[in-house]
Amino acid sequence: MAKIEVEHLYFYYGSKLVIEDISLEIETYKITALIGPSGCGKSTFLRCLNRMNDTIPGTRHRGRILLDGQDIYDPHLDVVTLRQRVGMVFQRPNPFPQSVYNNVAFGPRVQGLKHGQNLDEVVERSLREVDLWDEVKDNLNQDALSLSLGQQQRLCIARTISIRPDVILMDEPASALDPISTLHLEDLMRELVQDYTIVIVTHNMQQAARVSDDTAFFLTDDGQVGKLVEFGPTGRVFSAPEDTRTENYITGRFG
């Protein structure tokens, strides 16, 4: 069943078209990887899914993105509600310069959950889900920035899942991490996908092959406009690509 359906999406920065005519379906409880060379619009596409592009002035779109059948650009839909359902983890770990506890408690507090038993439970549960609890439970008041980068990124994921979103978007979440932390993160993603739908942008094709269920390959033909070249189950895309450009990319002939 499709969690997110994208229908003929075009996206513009000012008058400049950056992604063209993208249609795909993101399946529930699966990891969908978006791969492709730099500047092919995969991050822009990802940021459309929770409307983070709204924060950049002068952007506009055409086409439809449906979350559980509901158009996310519907003027009646509150973007705040959308982002509570579609969480995001960024390229560089960006915990708030506050305590570990306050980082995870941020989302629930914003939604109105007050301090106390419930909040403590949410914090513990979220930290356990990202395997960070045992490392930080003795000092939840420590500055989040004093953690290692890998821990920071897991903290950011804990922060994101603290409000139980349906979908987690990850924009190259491992690009700032060392190989061990990266593997740790990939294991974590496999665990999280039991409960969440995950969309991940990655430069790393091995990573896409390792963790994802579906793969979408993006490419620009002229270095300007990003297009979707191929989309399908990861095994099929990597073993028997239909498009020669996909084959060239995944065999490392360019990109």
């Binding site: 983070m52 705040v80 969480g87 960024f90 708030f96 914003v110």
Partner: peptide, 8 residues
């Protein structure tokens, strides 16, 4: 960005 993406 992190704040906004959290639905704040």
């Amino acid at each position: 960005d992190a704040g906004l993406a959290m639905g704040a």
